[in-house]
């Protein structure tokens, strides 16, 4: 071709070949982000709300177990919603920091810690029957960790440049709505009917928490030693 690197023509063979073929590569980037970048405000709200919600229900089994663990200890709506809100505020902070590129936590560390946090909360249900003030602090701390996990999921899609903040907030609202759905469902199915029964703790809280803790332990080991 006109590849005359030695003679003053800059077009080099490798560039030429890559040029001819790398449109394919671009297509991926374009499909992943140009579309997202062109979202209208309404579309961004709808899309990221849905994304946040589905990240919990039905896709976020580990988050579902975490919320259920919070619920089981004191199955009254008010304290559970307080804990869930602390959790949401916390994960909003780290998710935002991650998406703005201010922190970049390694997912291979974050994912096992998320399962460890589920195990912690579930086991706490076994060793105590009272909701202590420290629980909210612990939940907040774990919320920070879970936010980093959400960031990993969200980064796969990206956030539209023109609606960055709106999309971030909407995603979090979706997550919060997903959590509230779990709490309400658990309250209607269990809390409303059985939380005042004398056997509630013995027959529901402890066995279910042990099951959740076991699953979380399995996940922790799997994520550390057998990833993938």
């Amino acid at each position: 071709m006109m590849i005359e690197e030695n003679k003053g023509v800059l077009i080099t063979r490798k560039k030429w070949i890559a040029f001819l073929l790398a449109v394919l590569a671009f297509a991926h980037v374009a499909s992943a982000h140009v579309v997202v970048n062109n979202l209208s405000k309404t579309d961004a709200i709808s899309m990221y709300l849905q994304l946040g919600y589905t990240h919990i229900l039905p896709l976020g089994f580990d988050h579902i177990l975490f919320i259920l663990s919070l619920f089981l200890l004191n199955p009254k709506l008010k304290p559970v919603i307080w804990q869930a809100t602390a959790f949401t505020v916390a994960h909003t902070i780290t998710l935002g920091l991650s998406m703005y590129g201010l922190i970049s936590p390694p997912s291979h560390i974050i994912e096992p810690i998320i399962s460890l946090s589920i195990m912690y909360v579930a086991l706490e249900n076994v060793i105590t029957d009272k909701l202590r003030p420290t629980r909210v602090a612990v939940v907040f701390m774990f919320g920070l960790i879970h936010g980093m996990g959400f960031a990993s999921a969200l980064s796969q899609l990206g956030l539209p440049k023109n609606q960055f903040f709106l999309s971030l907030i909407t995603f979090n609202v979706g997550v919060e709505l997903g959590q509230l759905t779990i709490i309400l469902a658990a309250w209607f199915l269990v809390g409303k009917w059985f939380s005042h029964k004398p056997w509630y703790r013995k027959r529901i809280v402890i066995p279910v928490s042990i099951i959740i803790a076991s699953i979380a332990l399995f996940w922790t080991i799997q994520r550390v030693f057998f990833p993938g």
């Binding site: 040029f19 073929l21 590569a25 671009f26 991926h28 980037v29």
Partner: peptide, 8 residues
Amino acid sequence: EDYIQEAR
């Protein structure tokens, strides 16, 4: 595909 583009 992304790496090919990035190399370019």
